[in-house]
């Protein structure tokens, strides 16, 4: 272990723009499903830089979720190396990965996965209570423009609102990176755009690197960089020189 996750890693605000957050080399992931082996990732090299907005595009089964899960410390590669700043994720154990998730990375899922028994504010507080130097929960909710609905329970919020609470919850710990797996997958266009705007705002105002997984090519227009995957490989990696405004996007 090079360094522990509990200390010694700089916050995104202190780093330079081009500082590498993730550096993955030669990643392979094979799932053993009964008698067949499913190859989810094949020799993938991948980088994510501080402050960047990245869209990971690909069809279902292309391996994008597997990559994101490995980056997020939810899964480990079969072979290859993943470095988070200068820490080797691919060699971390369960406890270290938990600490990593607790302090450094935020998740947003397609199904918001809020705790139904806690209000919006409390769902965010759940994370700020265990983080090192978090935002105030109210602050995180204001960031996603939900400052008015702090005391609503998930069952009292719309899908878009729930997803924004999820974003506030993910960002409140001031993570270096936000990993979003199909964040608009369960939402209609307008609501989806509100959610994406929230992500953009987090990226621009807090400086958090954001990686968005989507099968929806329209969304790639908002990324600084677009990485396309197919059958477990990265087939395209383009820097997007002409980012569109979210208001122009339709799907």
């Amino acid at each position: 272990m090079v360094e522990s996750f509990s200390d010694g890693i700089s916050s995104p605000l202190e780093g330079t723009l081009q500082m590498q957050i993730f550096e993955a080399r030669g990643l392979n992931k094979i799932y053993h499903m009964g008698e067949v082996d499913v190859v989810a990732l094949k020799d993938v090299d991948f980088d994510l830089f501080a402050g960047e907005m990245l869209v990971l595009l690909g069809a279902s089964g292309s391996g994008k979720s597997t990559l994101l899960n490995i980056l997020g410390g939810l899964d480990t590669p079969t072979s290859g190396v993943v470095k988070y700043q200068n820490v080797l994720l691919s060699h971390s154990d369960e406890k270290e990965l938990t600490q990593y998730r607790r302090k450094h990375v935020g998740f947003v899922f397609q199904f918001y996965n809020l705790i139904p028994s806690l209000t919006a504010l409390e769902n965010v507080a759940l994370v700020t209570e265990i983080a090192d130097s978090p935002m105030r929960p109210e602050e995180a909710l204001e960031l996603v423009e939900l400052g008015e609905r702090l005391n609503h329970f998930p069952s009292q919020l719309s899908g878009g609102e729930q997803q924004r609470v999820a974003i506030a919850r993910a960002v409140a710990k001031r993570p270096n990176v936000l990993l979003c797996d199909e964040p608009t997958g369960a939402l209609d266009v307008e609501t989806g755009i509100v959610v994406l705007k929230a992500l953009q705002k987090v990226n621009q105002e807090v400086g958090t690197a954001v990686a968005i997984i989507t099968h929806n090519a329209a969304i790639s227009a908002i990324g600084d960089r677009v990485v396309q995957m197919s059958s477990g490989r990265i087939i395209e990696n383009i820097r997007n020189e002409h980012k569109s405004s979210l208001d122009d996007i339709v799907w």
């Binding site: 997020g72 939810l74 369960e94 406890k95 938990t98 600490q99 990593y100 998730r101 607790r102 302090k103 998740f107 996965n113 809020l114 705790i115 139904p116 028994s117 759940l126 994370v127 265990i130 983080a131 919850r169 710990k173």
Partner: peptide, 14 residues
């Protein structure tokens, strides 16, 4: 189960 899995993802230990 779902709630507890969310907490694990958020960095709660086992």
């Amino acid at each position: 189960g779902r709630e507890l899995a969310s907490l694990r993802v958020l960095g709660f230990s086992k």
